[in-house]
Simulated scan of single mutants.
Amino acid sequence: MPRPRTNDTEQDKLARFERIKKTIIALEKQQALLLKQGDMAASGAWVARYQVRQSLKKYWYYKLQAPIPYFQCATSNKLSKYKHLGKAGTQEHLDAVMSVFRRSVWDEIQRIIHTLDDCLLDISSGSEQEEEEPQD
């Protein structure tokens, strides 16, 4: 099989570079759509279920929880790791669930964009194919 000519290789690199750039633009548009859909939870936040016991009864509630203090306390100027959401199915609970969903999708898209940026760097720097040192 004949080796590709240098011109063909450069055209191939340019075409792949452009396809990756278009993909990154499409992913960034998806991120913009996520921002329009509503609030985004703090990075690393999740919705947690917890139980309260009172006079022989158990109640289940939900809270939005962050790894570091993020939420404004209602009674002081301090920040808290927790935001009470109430019972399952309340609007505040569902909004929090969706904000965590949007954050996780946003973060995954961002990871993909970073990976594609590395691909662009490989193509543009010529480091896709490197010579290996012979091992003894």
Rank of each mutant, 00 (worst) to 15 (best):
D117S: 08
M40H: 08
V97Q: 15
G86K: 02
G86L: 07
E108R: 08
T75C: 02
A32P: 01
W46Q: 09
E128F: 10
Q37L: 12
L27N: 00
E18A: 10
A74W: 05
E131D: 13
Y82N: 10
Q51S: 11
E130D: 09
G86C: 06
R49W: 02
R103L: 10
L64G: 01
A48L: 05
K87D: 12
K29P: 00
W106L: 12
A45K: 06
D8G: 01
D118N: 13
R5E: 11
E130G: 08
K29G: 04
T75Y: 07
Y82M: 05
Q129F: 13
A41L: 07
E18F: 00
D12A: 15
G44Q: 08
Q30F: 06
A32Q: 14
M40G: 04
T9W: 07
Y70L: 06
D118I: 10
Q135E: 15
R3F: 12
W46S: 12
W106D: 13
S124T: 15
E130H: 12
D136M: 10
R49Y: 05
G126T: 11
Y59P: 00
A41K: 03
D117L: 05
S55Q: 14
C119L: 05
D39F: 03
R19K: 09
I113A: 03
R3D: 08
I24N: 04
P69T: 03
Y82Q: 09
G86A: 04
R102G: 07
Y62W: 09
A41V: 07
M98C: 04
L27R: 05
A74I: 03
D118K: 11
E132A: 10
E131T: 13
P69G: 06
R49A: 08
S43P: 02
E18K: 10
L33G: 07
P2K: 13
Q37F: 01
V47Y: 00
L27K: 08
D107W: 02
T115L: 04
E92I: 12
H84A: 06
L121F: 11
R5N: 11
M40D: 06
L64H: 00
S127F: 15
T23S: 05
D12E: 11
L33D: 15
A32I: 01
Q110E: 10
T115M: 04
T9F: 08
S125N: 09
A15M: 12
A42G: 07
D95V: 13
G126M: 12
D12Q: 10
P69L: 04
S99C: 10
E131R: 15
Q110V: 01
D95E: 15
L56S: 11
K36E: 13
A96N: 04
R103W: 06
I20E: 00
M1T: 13
T6I: 14
S127E: 11
M98Y: 08
Y59I: 08
I24L: 01
C119V: 09
E130P: 03
R16P: 00
I113P: 00
G89L: 06
F17I: 12
V105R: 00
I20F: 02
I25T: 11
I24P: 03
T6K: 14
I24K: 02
S76H: 08
K87H: 14
A32H: 06
D39G: 09
